[in-house]
Design a protein around this nucleic acid. Structure first.
Lengths: 194, 194, 194, 194
DNA sequence: AATGAATGAGTATTCATTCAT
DNA sequence: CATGAATGAATACTCATTCAT
């Protein structure tokens, strides 16, 4: 499988770095090749075209991202703790790889509709993980029953995504992971005073 | 002021239509000019460059959007009702102008980071409106005191934005405004069962 | 009509010169533009793409070529004289424009099949002129009746074409027009001694 | 000699097939190698470069073509019969190997002038055969004396070549060999009625 | 002899912007 | 004010050839 070839990963890592530092539109294939230490033509032995590099970057990175979160929340006992873990790891992983954070929150969004459709497909497993936590929470009666699954998922993902994007746009000047507790409380308890 | 010139608005409206129908990347200046019924060069008598058209589209449309919401929530008595009104009008206005919805939720996001920074500036007054509602809610003790203002704003805006984007990407097949009540409940009461 | 625009003809003439001097494959669009004294982009205001330049070169030049021959042979009294005139003018016109001769006999032949198909279409009117001369000759009983039209046309065109190509490949070291009489005699009387 | 190596011929045959089926420009070295069942690099153990493959294809095939014709016409008694035999075999051989016909009449002509110069060298022996027949014909007084050798050769070769090219371009829908008699008559007797 | 992964030179085309009229 | 013809910078991808194994 091509993913075991060292050059495949070399190119993926080079792409993340080049895109994060130069922005999507200034990331020419030749620049990525140079950063990866291979010839321009070599890129095309491993990727169909430039778009395929971007999709593959996202697939590889999101795959690890999701696997990590899925593994961690399995060890938690109830949906509430699972949700907290998911928030914490979502923040932590993007905190720890700020190149990746820039690429996912800013650069990849300026892609064309066809690419964004593929990106959504890669995101689906993550959204499914969120759905599972919500469903479990309703079954465990930790969360209110009769929650609108799609809406709740949109609230959770929308909140996390917006929070990370703001953090990236503020040049990551504050600690993102520190916000996990508060975000979790907001999502579970809402705004209302009791 | 240039906004009183009829061609200025002609071009703004043409831009919304062209971008919504053709997508951001296929919206050449010449296409917008043709749709507006003016010569290519005329565009540059009213706008500094292409980016300026896009910013102006967003400014004009968001200005009305925000004015409308600000006016409406002033008439509401407490922060809870104001929040509900804000959600409802956010959804309704984008429902009623689907060209605008496509442009703001999908097409304008393909722009480069510099443009997006300016778009954020245009959004700021709207985020301030949200902040005001939250602050009032805390003062009125309708909302918990000690809420992290920025975080709450990100939750509210992130949730609304993600909800609208999903609706647009599902080709607007369901009624967006109908979701306002549920979204409001989710935001105020959270997920937890009581 | 675009053919009246001076730049259209400027580009056509530049293309003939550049292709004749550099060869088909070394004739980049930018080189043609430079020779024509226009910007690269201007080429695309007058031609759909590079192939369209080549087709148009051939159309324009062959159009004049054919018109000239058609006009001249109308004045001749019988098919035999018309054939002689056709041979003479075929040779003379390519003799007098050696850039055109190089382009038609050598460079345009290395084009791809799709282009060659279009080139054949442009040639058709010329082949029709040949056919008319042959048919008239049979009617006038100057030529044998029952000649196979297609075959005779192929003999005439094949002979002229091969003769010109050899002349071009020998760097035009001898006078092509001088051969007209002999070629005419060969075609009409054949090889056989009487 | 490299011609005894089996892979040499494998590659030659593969090249004819690949070029006939895919066209000259879509016949990459790697495609020829694959068809021949060898590695890309192996090609370069037997051929100097891609052009050398093409030249060699033409040399090998034309060698057989010419040998066959030379042998056959030696058995004929006079120049007239020899010319007829040459025409018949020219047509028959290309009829029987339609891959070769496509390659020689269409595909190889898309090559650059340098390659075509080398192709002409390969053709020379064939043109010499034609010359010999003409000279014999003049000596035998079967053909008119004082024929311009080069011109007659160009008429014969031009006619045959144009006839075959037209047949290939019409997708070989009619029987080429059947035309031999008529072509022979045209060449020897000309167009004129007696 | 044979392999095939790696190389890197080369080019048509688009479109935001200008400026002479 | 308005026009629209002209500009020219900028870039992904192919494929003949090499050479370490």
């Amino acid at each position: 499988m091509k993913k075991n070839k060292p050059k495949y990963n070399q190119i993926i890592e080079a792409a993340v770095k080049v895109i994060a530092e130069n922005g999507y539109h200034a990331s020419q294939v030749s620049k990525i090749a140079k950063q990866a230490g291979v010839a321009d033509g070599t890129i095309y032995l491993y990727f169909k075209n430039k778009e395929d590099i971007l999709i593959s970057v996202f697939e590889e990175k999101m795959g690890q991202f999701i696997t990590h979160i899925t593994d961690a929340i399995q060890k938690k006992e109830n949906a509430n703790e699972k949700l907290y873990e998911l928030i914490k790891l979502h923040f932590r992983q993007l905190s720890e790889d700020h190149h990746l954070a820039i690429v996912t929150q800013l650069e990849l969004r300026q892609s064309n509709p066809s690419l964004r459709l593929q990106i959504n497909n890669v995101l689906k497993p993550y959204l499914n993980v969120i759905d599972t936590v919500i469903t479990e929470g309703m079954e465990e009666k930790v969360f209110r029953k009769n929650l609108n699954l799609r809406l709740v998922r949109q609230m959770i993902f929308g909140t996390l995504d917006e929070t990370v994007t703001n953090w990236v746009m503020k040049d990551r000047k504050y600690n993102l992971v520190d916000l996990a507790t508060e975000v979790h409380t907001l999502l579970t308890e809402g705004l209302q005073s009791k």
